[in-house]
Simulated assay, not measured.
Amino acid sequence: MSADRLASRWVGLVLVAVTAVATLWLATTGRLDLYVHPRYTVFVVVMALLALAAAIAAAVLLSFRDEARTHGHGGHGHAHDGHLHGDDHGGDGPRRRAVTRIAVATGSAVLVAVSIAALVLAPPRTLSVSAAAARADSVVGAVQGASDPSGDPSGYTVKDWSNLLRQGRDDEVIGQRTQLTGFVQADPDDPDSFALSRFVITCCAVDARPTSVTVYSPGWSSSLRVGDWATVDGTFAANPSVLSMSSVALLPSSVVPVDEPSDPYLQ
């Protein structure tokens, strides 16, 4: 079988198998949540197992079929090969075909290698601050699919407080004390404020949207950098800033830099 036909037949199966193995590896290492909502973890793992089983079965069937063809048509194949050699005498056909086969085989090998490196070797990372800035423009009103928070306000997340503020329920927020963890974004309007943000994931990382609350903390940039994670303990109040677009801000009693949490996304 020619190299180009061999490549076209097997590269797809190899890529399916690599993707399935990478998905299972992410699941066993607890990193699949960086890509999909936890409610879909079981579904994704089952689909990956089915894809891997299908790729293995297809590879076995193709191997048996190739072997059967080799044994069943060996004589005819030799005669055909002889005819081809006779047709190509004195021409550049064999050379061109050889170059094409080498190029296809090399390209296929590179594609498989890059896919393996991207899916397995490259460490999974959370969405970046630049992604939050880019996606913020697409967020209108409260986070889609979010319900009104209930229970003890001390357990509210960045998403909960942000939704209440986006709904104009400032009176319910002002005076509330809370402790929140998120990553730091600069306030484009006020250098004395920053946004404490988290990504909210509905299905997978593709649909993740940022949500945030404004923290009024003059001089914050001396101890924090954009993109750092921090835990802020404070009380919501009318924003004392005359520059910020937020009417309510979290006035911190403490701002402590922390490591990125193991579950960086909110659901």
Rank of each mutant, 00 (worst) to 15 (best):
H71F: 12
A142D: 10
V18H: 02
V139I: 11
L15Y: 05
Q179I: 07
R135A: 08
L111H: 11
H78R: 14
L224D: 06
P261F: 06
G151V: 01
D233A: 09
S162E: 05
L34S: 04
P218C: 00
S221A: 10
A27E: 08
H71P: 05
V36T: 07
D81A: 14
A54R: 09
V242Y: 03
G141M: 07
L84E: 15
A27T: 04
L165R: 00
T231Y: 01
W10C: 03
Q185G: 08
L224M: 01
L84F: 08
L26G: 06
N239W: 03
H73V: 12
T41Q: 11
L119H: 08
A142R: 12
V21Q: 01
G93E: 14
L52R: 07
S147Q: 12
D152T: 03
P191Q: 06
W229L: 04
A105L: 14
D192F: 04
P264I: 05
E67H: 15
A58T: 15
V45I: 11
P257C: 05
L61D: 14
A118M: 13
A146W: 08
S2P: 12
H76T: 15
Q176T: 11
C204P: 05
H85T: 15
W229R: 08
G12L: 07
L250W: 05
D66M: 12
T23S: 02
T181R: 05
V173Y: 03
S115V: 03
G74T: 12
R198H: 04
T157Y: 01
R39H: 07
L13G: 03
V140C: 02
S254I: 00
A3W: 08
D228G: 02
F43Y: 11
A205Q: 06
G82V: 14
W10S: 09
L121W: 11
Q167E: 15
D160A: 10
R96V: 13
G77M: 09
M1Y: 00
D190H: 02
F236W: 09
F194D: 05
A98K: 12
A27R: 10
T211F: 01
V232K: 08
R31E: 14
H83L: 13
G219A: 00
P123M: 06
Q176C: 04
S244L: 00
F194R: 03
S8D: 01
V14K: 02
T211V: 03
S147C: 02
S246T: 01
V140L: 09
V99C: 10
V213S: 02
V46Q: 04
L26A: 09
H80P: 00
R69E: 14
D190R: 02
G107W: 06
F64A: 15
V120N: 02
D171R: 12
V16Y: 04
S223N: 05
L49D: 09
R166K: 09
V200R: 00
G182T: 02
F199N: 06
M245T: 11
V258P: 06
P94I: 14
S193T: 10
V213N: 05
V99K: 15
L250C: 04
A230L: 07
L243R: 14
S254R: 10
A230D: 07
S63Q: 13
G74E: 14
R177L: 01
L119G: 08
A136D: 12
V206F: 03
S108I: 13
N239H: 05
D152L: 01
P264R: 11
Y40V: 12
H89T: 13
V143E: 08
V60A: 13
V213C: 02
A208F: 04
M1G: 07
D81Q: 12
A79L: 14
D66R: 13
